[in-house]
């Protein structure tokens, strides 16, 4: 077979390569442009009728969780949040819930049933959710003491991820520049694949030094 004839089958290689590359990617992982940016200000009413302003929480590590009572994937992570609230009670740590596409009655019933003393905000017209580029629930934002979004988790958080993120943010100084970690927009997974999310190698992206060096 001549060289020219070999070119015909060779034309298949780029197509195969592209498909093979596709297999290594998860189409549901969308990189959020938000980590590293200042958390957008908002104020809203909680389920108990108080008003909370995000700006008032400056100085604390804020774990902001978008959830709904109809969201099955939210059940498990809720337990971790209850646990974290107790664990970090003496630290500069604040849990903040934001109710996504749900009625206040249902949301209140859920909080009574599953525990948790943190404020959960009602989000009229989903304005906060859109502002934060929420794809669906659950989604969780980790905001550092300086009021910057350090990390966004799409899908439920695992206990390990929650502790890791909160610990590292608590350890960081309240002022100063963003570290490489915080700026690195980590690919995160949308949708309900709890097993998947837990498997993510959180340690890797959490080491500031290793990230900066190629």
């Amino acid at each position: 077979m001549s060289f020219k004839k070999l070119l015909i089958p060779a034309s298949a290689i780029p197509i195969i390569a592209l498909l093979a590359y596709g297999l290594t990617r998860d189409p549901n992982k969308i990189e959020s442009p938000l980590p590293g940016r200042e958390a957008f200000a908002f104020s809203s009413e909680t389920l108990d009728g108080d008003t909370v302003r995000l700006a008032d929480l400056r100085g604390s590590v804020v774990v902001m969780n978008f959830w709904a009572s109809w969201c099955v994937a939210c059940i498990e992570e809720h337990g971790y949040f209850v646990e974290a609230e107790r664990l970090y009670a003496d630290s500069d740590f604040q849990m903040l819930g934001i109710v996504y596409q749900d009625t206040p009655e249902n949301a209140r019933r859920w909080m009574r049933m599953r525990g948790g003393d943190w404020p959960s905000l009602i989000d009229p017209n989903s304005r906060i959710a859109i502002d934060y580029g929420v794809y669906g629930v659950p989604e969780t934002y980790f905001i550092d003491k300086t009021g910057r979004i350090a990390f966004k988790q799409i899908g439920p958080v695992s206990r390990a991820l929650l502790h890791q993120k909160v610990d590292s943010l608590l350890a960081a100084p309240a002022t100063g520049d963003l570290t490489a970690t915080e700026r690195s927009a980590e690919a995160i997974s949308v949708g309900e694949s709890p097993g998947h999310v837990g498997d993510q190698p959180v340690e890797e992206s959490d080491r500031p030094t290793s990230e900066g060096q190629p």
Binding site: Q101, N125, S126, A129, I130, G136
Partner: peptide, 10 residues
């Protein structure tokens, strides 16, 4: 979906 509806409003 509800979200799209809110986005149109926004």
């Amino acid at each position: 979906s509800g979200m799209a509806q809110e986005m149109r409003g926004l």
